[in-house]
Design a protein around this nucleic acid. Structure first.
Lengths: 203, 203
DNA sequence: TTGTGGCCAGACAGGTCGGTCTACTTTGCT
DNA sequence: AGCAAAGTAGACCGACCTGTCTGGCCACAA
């Protein structure tokens, strides 16, 4: 009866330390979506805050600057992608090339998901092209990680020149990312997989 | 496409028309360089005008808006690339695959030139992601042209499935563009060429 | 010489940007 | 209960944004 009109009784955070992340998480996921759809410089801080339902001071307390927020988005995303991909690789079966082809299957799922609006790392490097800028550094680190992951898979296969094959596969992967976004071709990743199979067979 | 200010009306004299082109050209080439190095939204119109030594009114009389200027830069660049590439192809020798490998040789020259700071078309699509935006349309048109050019070369070779091979080669090309810029790997195009040779041999 | 029209510099307009600050309310731990 | 941390709204800042407009300069034709 005396319940106030405004008492939606927001779920009390049961875990103490999880509470810290609540607003931070809202910021990160909203930022990821808006930046992906519109670009980094095109999205103003105020738009982002309104969408996330967070106050400006919270953003600056948590991240310090817009560029740091972008960097945090990229680092979080890199972690998610890495764990999602390695989980997929762990279950990969098929011939000896199954592991590598599974990377391209995973890629096909990624670029076909409705949340995909181009690779955020490539966009970050485009909009923050100077070596010293943190978003570009995060992008470089992630892409280097991709190449290393591919190289490791090639090495496990006992390929003659694993570094070389890994770089070629990486080209296909990045090409698929770009063309999935630029032309709206959901099959780009499939074509990349086909090409990867050819390269693998020849190695 | 080019300025042809004659017959229809007794319009400006030749001298003033030549002057117009001069300022227009200064705008286009300065814009191309600044946008390539810093990104489209990162470069303000005043910076651009100061660098080009052109008055603001001239820009708006010639192009109407910043987005139209960007579009004009992209269209001019697309023309230059197309003619430079087809000129190279005309002189391509080597085996039956020479023409296609020449595309990747040309690419290697492009990405290694000091003026290369990433593909302006990919960046345009990133910063103007909506279908209705003119810079993105120009980028889509150019990339579609690239794919068609590759497909035509494959077709001339009598490849079984030219469209499919062309798409695979296109993936390598775009991948090389991205990785040349993101990692600063001048060898990306060379690796793409190697991979292209493998795909060609298998087709 | 005088007139004309293209181009100039730069002031201006109206908004938005990233970022700071204050003063207040909620929240969660002890 | 009490307190400190975290979060809130929103005013405010100076810089910068795209785009418009004014008034004058200068080349050239009659």
């Amino acid at each position: 009866m005396s319940e106030r009109a405004t008492t939606t009784k927001p779920s009390p955070a049961r875990t103490s330390s999880a509470k810290v992340s609540a607003k931070r998480e809202a910021l990160l996921s909203t930022a990821e979506e808006l930046f992906a759809r519109q670009g980094y410089r095109a999205v103003g801080i105020d738009t982002l805050l309104a969408e996330a339902g967070v106050a400006k001071m919270t953003l600056y307390k948590q991240f310090g600057s817009k560029e740091e927020l972008i960097t945090a988005v990229l680092e979080r995303l890199a972690g998610e992608i890495t764990s999602s991909l390695t989980a997929r690789l762990a279950t990969a079966t098929g011939g000896s090339h199954g592991r590598i082809l599974a990377v391209f299957d995973w890629l096909a799922d990624w670029v076909r998901s409705p949340a995909f609006h181009g690779c955020l790392f490539i966009k970050a490097a485009s909009e923050y092209p100077e070596s010293g800028e943190r978003p570009r550094q995060a992008a470089e680190a992630f892409k280097a990680g991709c190449r290393e992951l591919l190289e490791e898979q090639c090495r496990e296969l006992g390929i003659a020149d694993p570094e070389r094959l890994a770089r070629q596969l990486h080209l296909l992967l990045e090409g698929a990312l770009v063309l999935s976004f630029l032309e709206r071709d959901p099959q780009a990743a499939t074509h990349a997989r086909d090409a990867a199979a050819v390269l693998l067979a020849a190695a």
